[in-house]
Write a protein that binds this DNA or RNA. Sequence first.
DNA 1: CTGAAAGCGCTTACAG
DNA 2: CTGAAAGCGCTTACAG
Lengths: 345, 345
Amino acid sequence: MASNERPAKLTLAAIAREAGVSAPTVSKVVNGREDVAADTRAKVLTALERTGYKSPLQRKNTVWRRPVVEVVIDTLNSAYGVEVLNGVLEHAAASDVEVLLNVTGQQRGSHLSPEQRAQRMVDEGRSGMIVVTSAFSAAELEPFHRRQIPIVVIDPLNPPQGEVVSVGASNWAGGKAATAHLLGLGHRRIAFLGGPEAAECNQARLHGYMAALMADGVAVEESYIFSGPFRPDNGVAGMKSILQLEPRPTAIFAASDSIALGILAEARRQKIRIPEDMSVVGFDGTYQAEESVPPLTSVSQPLQEMGRAALRFVMRQLRGDTLDSHRVELATHLVVRESTAPPAG
Amino acid sequence: MASNERPAKLTLAAIAREAGVSAPTVSKVVNGREDVAADTRAKVLTALERTGYKSPLQRKNTVWRRPVVEVVIDTLNSAYGVEVLNGVLEHAAASDVEVLLNVTGQQRGSHLSPEQRAQRMVDEGRSGMIVVTSAFSAAELEPFHRRQIPIVVIDPLNPPQGEVVSVGASNWAGGKAATAHLLGLGHRRIAFLGGPEAAECNQARLHGYMAALMADGVAVEESYIFSGPFRPDNGVAGMKSILQLEPRPTAIFAASDSIALGILAEARRQKIRIPEDMSVVGFDGTYQAEESVPPLTSVSQPLQEMGRAALRFVMRQLRGDTLDSHRVELATHLVVRESTAPPAG
DNA sequence: CTGAAAGCGCTTACAG
DNA sequence: CTGAAAGCGCTTACAG
């Protein structure tokens, strides 16, 4: 008879039987009351753990909730961010994960300390976080690590910190390829219109640029190197400066498509023809590079794949898998369109 | 004695007394069961709302969680959707609401019935939903209404359904203004390159176009009217057709900026100069209209404001406020840039 | 579609 | 400190 009994439902009463105590006693233990003898409490706790008992509340909360991953991003007003987000969303749909969006340009929740934000993530049942092109200190991440909340960073704006898991692209190789392409067309005076000076990805692109120049025996000219935000206005301002240089560069390698778009706009205003008077290479390879006038030669990053990889990393950490590496770097490749040509003359 | 009684505890039974029904009936309503007569349900809902009843589960969950609102959108690959989303995010940041993003182009959760999706929203503690440019039937929305989940629709792709709360813009006036602008420049052969034929907003724009023509005594030419998706490829295909019309139109009113961008691209390929050979007006007024070549004359919609208004509507319903109206329509206005000029000759 | 009755699982109050 | 008994609040099963 005993061997054919179906397993009793997991109720307080069942735990009580299991532990050899009464239901009210189990109730007290579950509710953290103090009027229970230590050894009685121990017996009950053992039974609770062995059977995996959940209160009706907990059970209702476990109706199979999908994991919720928060994506933190500074702005959606660039094709870069939207593409990364699309990758995250695609993988989220495939793996039944929900995506919470937090655009920090809008300063949400900035009044909270990292400690409070991490605690709130636990309270609200959030599973992990993906941070896109942001700067953060080890101290800001520590409260999340302590609570075992997986965080993955895409293209951090500051140098990698200890244990941080990050996803990026081969920026150095991309910068080298872009510059080599211009050199191959015959350009010798090539400007670098960069992103934020401190950004890892920007430094790698700059060093790729310098490596290509050096490989061809072209001296690096300090006055040809600029930096600023990854935004069109930086391209506009940079283009104005570059047009006043003597001797004037014949080509520009821009560290992002958004910067390159600013260059194109300023060129139009000043009646500088692209590529006849000036060649321009961008970086990112978003759809904006395809649709610009003229279509932009650009170093394409697998942005969607980067988003997917970031979410995959979060989920792996959630499952408790060990990671092979704390950094994934996906390949970039140069796409030649119509904004580059041999220099005039 | 009655006047000094302390208020009865807020139990199912109390609600039942209040509504003049039995406890099991209240239980059914609270749990979203279907076997309750509409008027009985209404009585119970009133009582629930008046007393602010919370189930034990809800009571325990009220550790002060921020409301979570889900935004459902077909794609982020258009400036339209991103702008609306920016508006939602901005108001969400200001009012301490979390935003969950669901991009349906990726078919997520499509295997679930509306009933299941609505129940899951309750289970996962979601507060409300904002649906952007989607089609849906009354039957699809009913399970959400039954569970008192506020839904607000932005620019529905099908005609408004009964109780649906929606946000939009003055499409008819905008279509009329765009067409009047072209007529004022001297155009008489004006094509309409529209969006989805069934879409409310598209129909309003089309009728605004016809109203302007008729006001100027210009006959509506059926062969000048096209429809298709709100996407650049529709603009490309439409432009090809229009260029073959005899006599050829001298201007095009496109029902969205994305369609207009396709027109500009095809014009470039065919060496048709804009605006010298053909004037083009778009609709939406996204940043793409500013950055295109040439910059696009377009009817600007307050997309961010529409996103903000949608979230405000959701929150009002959550608080149980009565809505003044089930439809908000914000003003559009024409922004003249460089894609329109008097016809040649 | 409704509700009286039975039931379920947890908690409370209190005697020992 | 423990547990039999009573109680609470919600849900289920089903007769009408």
